[in-house]
């Protein structure tokens, strides 16, 4: 006998994604992976929004989700652009080798 999947299951999933993303940002040293972890957090937000959009039967959440996706793309584009500028001058993508400023 299977239980039906409710909004709560999705909220738990998104909370888990938030935690995984946070751990990724805090522990990984490769900047590309840190950027991916940030994407994971933003996707946790999207799952939340779409779930609750269905729960409340209105479209605010879905519209918000589209904006979050747009912002995530802009942030990733800028992030990779800065990473390329940094790589040209420094030849590394490891966060702990970027140490010119006191961290």
């Amino acid at each position: 006998m299977l239980h039906p999947i409710t909004s709560n299951h999705y909220l738990v999933l998104s909370a888990a994604m938030l935690i995984i993303g946070t751990l990724g940002v805090l522990t990984r040293r490769n900047i590309v992976i840190v950027l991916m972890s940030i994407e994971l957090i933003l996707n946790a937000v999207n799952i939340n929004l779409v779930t609750m959009s269905h729960h409340w039967q209105n479209l605010h959440g879905q519209v918000f989700a589209i904006f979050v996706i747009t912002v995530a793309v802009a942030e990733a584009a800028i992030g990779l652009g800065i990473l390329i500028a940094l790589f040209r001058n420094k030849e590394t993508v490891q966060a702990d080798e970027i140490d010119l400023l006191k961290w």
């Binding site: 992030g79 800065i82 010119l100 400023l101």
Partner: peptide, 9 residues
């Protein structure tokens, strides 16, 4: 570059 990268992350 470094400042921007840290600020962005």
């Amino acid at each position: 570059n470094e400042a921007a990268m840290k600020y962005l992350l």
